[in-house]
Amino acid sequence: MDNERLQYLLVRVRSSSCSEEEMAELNEWYEQLDDGPEQLKDWIEEAGGKEKLVDQLYANFSKKIAKPRNRSVASITRLSVAATIAFLLGAALLYYKFQNESIPDRSGMAQSKIQSDTNISKLTLADGTKINLDDAAIGELYHKDGLSISKTDSNSLTYRSTVALKPVTDPKMQFNTLDIPRGGQYKISLPDGTKIWMNSASTLRFPVTSNGRDRLVSLTGEGYFEVAHNKELPFKVITGDQQIKVLGTHFNVKGYPDEKLISTTLLEGSVRVSRYSSGESKLMIPGQQANLFQNSSHIALTKANINQVVAWKNGYFTFDNESIENIMNTISRWYNVDVVYVGKQSGERFGGSFSRKSDLAEILHNLEELGNLRFRIKEQKVIVSGTSEQ
């Protein structure tokens, strides 16, 4: 798609006049953006420069948040793929525009810009050896008994097996553990070709030997999986009260201990989700999300908002009709801050998308504009209060 056509379609999206055919065309372009924010930045420069687009998109964003709200839901947009594009561009452009400017003093936020550039992650080997991945140099970290572990870039780990794995009995199984703290993110490639992206505050326990029956991993937190197909060795993921069984597929699992929900979202292939406590299991198809709530014994299948689910992997926060508590849970994990609530919250719900490279104060400023909330950053804490408590 040439730049002139793309600019035309973005204008159509901004003005809510895009036809279904034009939305489909824009979706197709968006799906081809495999290189994320850097490719987006290149296109911005080619499409006429960021200054013009910043002014247009920021003006549109300001109009949206300034509109009187006659309902309790403050939402920027229903975040379908094409509808999200204009906002993603706006968020990315706002980051480029404001990254070298000071934030105005609002609720004490100007004096504390907590950035999200701390990726401190740890790998624990089967023998108990711990490797600080943040300090480790790029290159081979470990090589023994035909297994090689290499750090391929600042946030990626690759396992390779130079010999065929012979099945061992369960007592002799060996596991490695990858711990990703708050503020971190990592990608790991396993010897079978499976790729896993780990979100903040997550832990993955995975085998480095084979039992000849399956490939069983345990996840706490959130991970996106691209599982290599092997019908002889099904891939299984245990998260809390849930087990996922797959042969080869792409899916996202989110199950943080401090949340009352485990959600599995299927993008490609098929998986079977089972609940240990009730014995219930359901087969999923692409586009579905399986939800396991603590206060229910059933597995609920719903239609998934794919773009919202995998936004973290692509470098964004995307919220759609979310409570401030859910939003702040996500923010606290990425920016490595604790959240304190003062007074009773309004119950408002929010929608929007922001780059994960954005300054925390700028995100909180935008949330203030959208609802009856105020934020104050004090050391490693974000204090949330309603406007009536100010």
Rank of each mutant, 00 (worst) to 15 (best):
A74R: 02
D105G: 00
I262D: 01
G347H: 10
L360Y: 00
S148E: 13
S107N: 15
S112Y: 13
Y256A: 09
G248H: 00
D214K: 02
G287W: 09
W197N: 10
E348R: 11
R376Y: 05
G49L: 11
N100L: 14
K52V: 13
S156C: 14
P207G: 07
S200I: 03
P167K: 04
S102T: 10
S281L: 10
L93K: 06
L93C: 08
D135T: 12
T84Y: 07
G223W: 01
Y341E: 09
S121Y: 02
T129Q: 14
L247E: 04
V342E: 15
V384N: 08
V337F: 10
E4N: 11
G90F: 01
M23C: 13
D214Y: 01
N307W: 00
L267I: 09
N305Q: 09
V271S: 02
K97W: 15
R213L: 03
F317K: 06
R374P: 06
W29N: 05
V310D: 05
P181V: 13
N3D: 15
A74F: 00
D258P: 10
V382I: 11
I149P: 03
N321P: 00
S323Q: 05
P171Y: 12
K97D: 08
S358M: 07
M284Y: 10
G183V: 05
A311C: 06
L267F: 15
F354H: 04
D192Y: 09
F317M: 03
E325N: 13
L6I: 05
I363K: 00
A304R: 01
V11E: 12
W334M: 11
L216W: 01
N326T: 13
G212N: 05
G315F: 09
S154T: 15
E379P: 08
L364R: 03
Q289R: 06
G223Q: 02
E20V: 12
D42V: 12
S72D: 15
G352A: 10
F175A: 03
L125R: 08
V310L: 10
P234V: 00
F98Q: 10
I383H: 01
S355T: 06
L157W: 00
D359T: 01
N230Q: 11
P167C: 12
E322H: 07
E379I: 07
T265D: 01
T330D: 15
R12S: 04
N314H: 13
I103M: 13
S332V: 05
S332G: 10
N155D: 14
V309H: 05
K67N: 13
V246R: 04
P234F: 05
Y316Q: 05
T387K: 13
K378P: 06
Y224I: 03
G146T: 00
G183A: 01
V237P: 02
M328N: 11
N295C: 06
E259R: 13
E38P: 00
Q288N: 11
C18H: 04
Q99M: 13
P257G: 11
R14K: 09
E38K: 14
I306K: 08
E362M: 08
S15M: 00
G221M: 02
I44W: 12
N291F: 08
E362R: 10
E45V: 13
I238V: 14
G351N: 07
D2H: 11
S355I: 02
Y256G: 04
S107E: 14
G279T: 05
N372K: 12
N27Q: 04
G212R: 06
R106G: 07
F235K: 07
D55K: 12
N100S: 12
T118R: 14
D170A: 15
S161N: 04
I188Q: 09
P191S: 14
